[in-house]
């Protein structure tokens, strides 16, 4: 039996979670105050994932960069791969919130989408 202590990141409450593990199997989860927290704890000890947010260059826009995110969370260990994959990407204005920038970022099967409207200059 191993007890793993986590801080929930599902919302700013930051609940203190306690997961009892037996090998790779989750035995019990305590300390959560919503379903999100319980799901997070189970996922964090078996398959930690993060949404990655960054920017890519945009040409002919009112700003030089447009903010982007992975449409869903990706495996935590893929964060830096994701950053390398979006390095050097350039899009052209206008860009709308939700526009797909890369279909499948760093082999995660998750799309990279714009999170800001940037008008053409």
């Amino acid at each position: 039996m191993e007890i793993r202590k986590l801080t929930c990141i599902g919302c700013p409450m930051g609940c203190a979670l306690s997961v009892t593990m037996e090998g790779k199997e989750v035995k019990s989860i305590e300390g959560y105050t919503c379903k999100r927290g319980k799901d997070y704890a189970a996922k964090e000890v078996t398959n930690p994932r993060r949404i990655v947010t960054s920017t890519v260059r945009i040409s002919q826009g009112v700003l030089p960069v447009v903010s982007v995110k992975t449409k869903e969370d990706i495996p935590k260990e893929k964060i830096l791969d994701c950053m390398h994959a979006l390095d050097g990407i350039q899009v052209t204005a206008p860009v709308r919130i939700g526009d797909v920038i890369i279909d499948d970022i760093a082999g995660t099967g998750v799309a990279l989408v714009a999170t800001k409207n940037v008008e053409a200059s």
């Binding site: 986590l6 599902g10 409450m13």
Partner: peptide, 8 residues
């Protein structure tokens, strides 16, 4: 800061 930010 918020807990989630310290973790993440």
């Amino acid at each position: 800061g918020l807990k989630r930010n310290i973790v993440q």
